[in-house]
């Protein structure tokens, strides 16, 4: 009897799923511009850095950490791509939705709560990260740069890495009145991370005093995880550290994104 009653009731769609669906449907109607930047750039990097620089490297020193340069650099590019996707999705689009087109204001006039928007948005970025991760993993495999079944975790790592950036940046963008500070974020955070996260050359090549700095780069932890997954060997201790750093960024970012977006939309 209990069951019939339950069946008779209309099932409602969890609120944050509506926001996930909305972000996804929006993307599918406006996707053309972003696909190019998501896939073309990493491919160009892979081609130019992997093949071009790789050729240079092997001509001079042979192998990097016992691997061809292409193999060395490919997982790092996956980590960078994930970071870029996470970061680009959560700065201008979020500021636009709270400040310019104000579509998040429209959303909170419906049953949605600010927290539902945060979850829906980040879940959608997660979905995109996953599929981007799948495409890139296949591509890297195609270049012959994978040699472990652990590589199957790369799409999930892409999700973690991307969201570790997306969540705190969404929290930040929710508080902004203009995009002026975003340029500084690029200049002082994203680009240095891109260059100094042991992405293009191994940690062993950094002078001793720079190594702790590299360790501080959040992206470094993503690169290290992706590289371990691609090569299939890792040290448990450092894996735990890398996962904790990224997981912590995601956790804290999510919390403050919820808080800040509520303050922005419901004040």
């Amino acid at each position: 009897m209990d069951r019939t009653i339950r069946r008779g009731r209309t099932r409602t769609w969890p609120r944050w799923h509506r926001s996930l669906w909305y972000h996804g449907a929006f993307y599918l109607q406006t996707w053309r511009a972003s696909v190019i930047s998501t896939f073309l750039f990493p491919l160009l990097y892979l081609a130019s850095m992997g093949l071009g620089v790789g050729h240079l490297v092997s001509a001079h020193t042979g192998l990097v950490e016992g691997r061809s340069y292409l193999r060395f650099v490919a997982p790092g590019l996956l980590a960078i791509t994930a970071m870029n996707l996470g970061e680009s999705e959560s700065m201008w689009p979020v500021l636009g939705a709270v400040k310019w087109v104000r579509t998040y204001h429209a959303a909170v006039a419906t049953p949605l709560e600010p927290e539902d928007i945060v979850l829906g948005k980040l879940a959608w970025v997660g979905v995109r990260l996953f599929f981007t991760g799948v495409v890139l993993t296949i591509t890297i495999a195609f270049f012959g740069a994978l040699n472990s079944w652990w590589a199957l975790t790369l799409p999930l790592l892409a999700v973690l890495i991307g969201l570790a950036f997306a969540a705190p940046l969404m929290a930040f963008a929710s508080t902004r009145e203009s995009d002026a500070s975003f340029t500084s974020i690029y200049r002082f955070l994203i680009i240095p991370m891109f260059l100094f996260s042991a992405t293009f050359y191994p940690m062993s090549q950094y002078p001793g005093y720079l190594r702790p700095v590299v360790q501080l780069m959040p992206l470094y932890h993503g690169v290290a995880l992706a590289r371990s997954a691609a090569f299939g060997h890792a040290e448990v201790g450092s894996m735990v550290l890398h996962l904790t750093v990224l997981g912590g960024m995601l956790f804290l970012g999510l919390r403050s994104a919820k808080k800040n977006l509520r303050r922005r939309l419901a004040s």
């Binding site: 509506r18 926001s19 669906w21 909305y22 929006f26 109607q29 087109v101 429209a106 006039a109 049953p111």
Partner: peptide, 20 residues
């Protein structure tokens, strides 16, 4: 607070989904 990138019809169709 309209979705400027979307079509007029899609503005309504998508907004309606917020109400399930």
């Amino acid at each position: 607070t309209l979705e400027l990138e979307l079509s007029v019809m899609n503005n309504l169709l998508m907004f309606g989904r917020y109400f399930d």
